[in-house]
């Protein structure tokens, strides 16, 4: 009887109307939240463009093609900064993707159970360390290590490559890339690990039943199944690397110059803004720094768009396949 009346009450016209109203309110609320994100991104872009207007007018496209960054002489060419940002991020990804993916595969496929939790925890702890700590560690530990051991070694064996010519003074592009490697590693590892955990058991068993070894199962069944998600993890890491400011500023050398050797000091977009904003004396200097911010915004946007396109193309095959 009681249950009967509950059902009746649920189906009463008033209850249904209330439900519809709640649905409507829910839709509107979440729509506003989502819309807010769009508005904020648009506002940042507009603000950057407006504030950098004097520099935009004065330098035009030369701003990103000229490599002459000389605030004293009033010359602002951001190419070395773009180079520094992109090159340090590329170094970081080249090292962090195999390393991070390797750790993820170890944790999800190979590791004995008792080791999974502590190693996984430590990797995620890496993500929580403030970047200024990475920077300090970079200055006091990593930079001397690069100067005294890594750079001479690379120079000795791979000196025939322009990348490893000359001497390192510790701070420079290579050191910045190495610091970034450590900083993005936890993103790649923890996201990839989640992705690998979602690969269904029947995929692994299909591979095992064909007589695949553990490595072959990972190579032919597990990684291909998770590839879209893994690319997502790499994009997340790339976004982090492109925008990282503090740690990079402390170890990259802060010299606006493009050079082939990774041992030489360089400068990144985020670092130049952080370093020079307080001392920017003229209106043009300030607006040039803001334009650097605009360019960084643009580079990040382009990289993300390119990555989305990649995911869409890779994932497109799968989507078509699922029909």
């Amino acid at each position: 009887m009681a249950a009967d009346s509950i059902v009746k009450r649920l189906k009463a016209p008033g209850a249904l109307a209330r439900g519809r109203l709640a649905d409507r309110a829910f839709f509107i609320a979440t729509f506003i939240f989502a819309g807010l994100v769009l508005l904020i991104v648009a506002a940042i872009f507009i603000e950057l463009a407006v504030m950098s207007w004097p520099s935009l007018i004065k330098f035009g496209p030369r701003f990103i093609t000229s490599s002459d960054w000389d605030p004293v002489a009033g010359k602002f060419g951001a190419l070395p900064l773009i180079f520094g940002t992109v090159a340090s991020s590329v170094i970081a990804l080249l090292l962090a993707v195999p390393l991070g993916l390797g750790v993820a595969v170890f944790l999800s496929e190979v590791s004995p159970p008792w080791l999974k939790t502590p190693v996984g925890f430590l990797v995620e702890l890496l993500a929580g360390i403030p970047s200024v700590i990475y920077g300090l560690w970079g200055i006091f530990v990593l930079a001397p290590l690069v100067m005294n051991h890594l750079a001479p070694w690379l120079n000795h064996y791979f000196g025939w490559l322009p990348l490893f010519r000359g001497t390192s003074y510790g701070v420079g592009l290579l050191t910045a890339g190495l610091i970034l490697t450590l900083m993005v590693l936890p993103f790649i590892t923890s996201v990839s690990r989640e992705i690998l955990a979602t690969v269904p058991r029947d995929q692994r068993e299909a591979a095992l039943a064909l007589g695949m070894t553990r490595w072959e199962v990972i190579r032919h069944a597990v990684l291909p199944y998770g590839r879209v998600g893994i690319i997502g993890a790499v994009i997340l890491a790339l976004g982090r690397a492109l925008g990282e400011t503090m740690a990079v500023t402390m170890v990259i050398g802060n010299t606006p110059r493009i050079s082939a050797s990774l041992f030489n000091p360089a400068y990144s977009m985020a670092a130049v803004i952080a370093n020079e904003f307080t001392e920017a004396s003229s209106r043009l200097y300030v607006s040039a720094l803001i334009e650097v911010g605009l360019v960084l915004f643009g580079v990040t946007f382009l990289v993300n768009a390119a990555a989305r396109l990649l995911i869409w193309r890779v994932g497109g095959g799968q989507k078509r396949a699922r029909v």
Binding site: D202, E205, A206, A209, G211, P224, G317, Q318
Partner: peptide
Amino acid sequence: PVAIRKRIGMVFQRPNPFPTM
């Protein structure tokens, strides 16, 4: 066991082709 599984094939309950291949 890998050598054994090469000699003994298996077909599963749910079709499980490799989706990326």
